[in-house]
């Protein structure tokens, strides 16, 4: 089973001074799976994404992507290999247009070496970016600067940029945070369509339990940097260890 995994971690640890944000995490995700990662605040979910995407070097342990070690590679390399991510706190290029935001992400083959001397204003590139904007439902805003978009649209823009990298794995960090229920439902629809139409593997960190349960095929529960449970959503819902962890921090499960 683990041999066929798209991505797996091996005894992954990340310490900040005395704080063990990740403490021996072993997880894997299979092709075309939607994997949910949940846990109370400060459980280490975002740290996990930061280590996988290369922003942090792990203190101990490794990350393997298609059986190649990728920990210690810089973020740009990892992105080029096919792992793209979104941020919990959106990071749009505020003064660029929505279309330009996506075009930036279409250039992964040009930023290496010196092919960056070529023009980016090309028909095929613009078509690709426009197509992706249609896919996430932002095409009507393509010429406005990103800074005028409301938060819900900015999250879509994050996803659009991540898609422009033609990823194998998409890491979504709380894609519905700060959204109304209606907006959240739309994002959920978008995420499941992406998997069906693009066959992309998705890892989803969520604070919103409902969203995570509904979308995920399989889930991990992270608490104090450790995996405390694994399984399909129905099982997680009933798992006493999980309920305990969430009750302890004042959240309701399901």
């Amino acid at each position: 089973m683990k041999g066929s995994a798209m991505l797996r971690t091996e005894n992954l640890c990340k310490y900040f001074g005395g704080v063990r944000a990740l403490d021996g995490v072993n997880i894997y995700v299979e092709k075309e799976e939607i994997l949910g990662i949940i846990g109370p605040n400060g459980a280490g979910k975002t740290t996990l994404f930061n280590v996988i995407s290369g922003f942090y070097k792990p203190t101990k342990g490794h990350v393997f992507y298609m059986n190649k070690r990728i920990d210690r590679l810089p973020p740009a390399k990892i992105a080029k290999m096919g792992i793209s991510r979104t941020f919990q706190i959106v990071k749009p290029f505020r003064d660029l247009t929505v279309l330009q935001n996506v075009i930036v992400a279409c250039g992964k083959d040009y930023y290496f070496g010196i092919s960056f001397v070529k023009s980016y204003y090309r028909k095929d590139i613009i078509e690709k970016a426009t197509r992706i904007l249609e896919e996430v439902g932002l095409s009507e805003y393509k010429d406005s600067p990103a800074k005028v978009l409301p938060i819900g649209h900015l999250r879509r823009l994050e996803i659009a940029r991540a898609l422009a990298l033609d990823p194998q794995i998409l890491l979504l960090d709380e894609p519905t945070a700060g959204m109304s229920h209606k907006e959240a439902v739309e994002i959920m629809k978008l995420v499941s369509t992406l998997r069906e139409e693009r066959g992309v593997t998705i890892m989803l960190v969520e604070h919103n339990m409902k969203v995570a349960m509904e979308l995920s095929d399989r889930m991990y529960v992270l608490n104090y940097g450790k995996i405390i449970a694994e399984g399909p959503p129905e099982e997680i819902k009933k798992n006493p260890v999980v309920i305990e962890a969430y009750l302890g921090s004042g959240y309701k499960v399901g």
């Binding site: 995407s53 290369g54 740009a76 992105a79 930023y111 940029r161 422009a164």
Partner: peptide, 8 residues
């Protein structure tokens, strides 16, 4: 964001 989009 630039880094995650493949920019060194």
């Amino acid at each position: 964001a630039a880094q995650t989009l493949g920019i060194d």
